[in-house]
Design a protein around this nucleic acid. Structure first.
Length: 255
DNA sequence: AGTCGCCTGGTA
DNA sequence: TACCAGGCGACT
């Protein structure tokens, strides 16, 4: 649960401190306290962060609680215990931690940046999108949604994407994430926001979790394959693995 | 670059 | 009973 510190140290360092900032880098929530003390929280697969009054009953699997004044509790509820909370004693420490894990934030992507990062990468495009050191913030469902929107097959070698495909993909990544944020998250299972409310983005998914259902653009049944032990959903008609100049005009990017 | 392990719960 | 799940770090 807390790989980088003990409960005793957390108490010692955090008690009496004030929150000065709340932010995000990739999938890490960052809480900045006075004296340059920082907390990072990663929800991983099943974690929910709830802000609730101290007198309200705590959900099962509540593993971490910070009590604020005026009375309010930040509760980390995480059935699978994959989530992580880390304490940092300076922004230098925090930034070192983030720098060795995260590439540029996905909301800052543009086609120029994406094109330069794809150069020389022979791996599958979907695996790269899920690599937080490549681009920070894209998860499994948003990767599938973005690849569908950009009409790129998830198994395509990254350095074979055409300029047009890269442009569509950069736009699609920002679009699907922005939509997800506007709809306050994707709650196909148990995701809740800090107020305990589910999001609505699950109502708008085009391919993720929709094996066998019709592609919203062309009606072809959505297919599910496994890439790197993760599900990948795509339209087999519009997202083709072996492309040719006739079907997909444009210059491929070379190493 | 590609696997394995970590955990619990929901569903077919 | 078996398989699936918004992730990622360790390991080969």
């Amino acid at each position: 649960m807390l790989p980088n510190t003990s409960e005793a140290e957390l108490r010692e360092v955090l008690v009496g401190r004030s929150v000065e900032s709340v932010g995000r880098r990739g999938k890490y929530l960052l809480i900045g306290f006075d004296d340059d003390v920082w907390l990072s929280i990663h929800r991983k697969m099943s974690g929910n962060l709830l802000l609730e009054p101290p007198e309200s009953p705590r959900a099962l699997h509540t593993h971490f609680v910070v009590t604020f004044d005026p009375a309010l509790e930040l509760r980390f509820v995480d059935p699978r215990k994959f989530g992580r909370v880390n304490l940092f004693r300076s922004s230098v420490e925090l930034n070192e931690f983030l720098a060795e894990r995260l590439g540029p934030d996905s909301l800052d992507l543009d086609d120029t940046l994406l094109a330069s990062k794809l150069k020389g990468r022979s791996g599958r495009i979907k695996s790269l999108l899920l690599d937080q050191a490549f681009v920070a913030g894209v998860g499994n469902l948003y990767a599938d949604e973005a690849l569908w929107e950009a009409r790129v097959h998830p198994l395509r070698a990254a350095n074979t994407l055409t300029a047009e495909e890269i442009q569509r993909l950069a736009l699609a990544i920002k679009h699907v994430l922005t939509q997800g944020i506007e709809r306050r998250g994707t709650s196909f299972s148990s995701y809740l926001d800090a107020d305990g409310a589910p999001g609505e983005n699950q109502e708008f998914l085009n391919v993720y979790g929709r094996e066998g259902q019709a592609c919203p653009r062309c009606g072809t049944p959505i297919r599910r394959i496994v890439i790197g032990q993760r599900s990948a959903y795509f339209c087999p008609k519009e997202q083709v693995e072996s492309w040719s100049r006739e079907s997909e005009p444009g210059q491929p990017t070379h190493v």
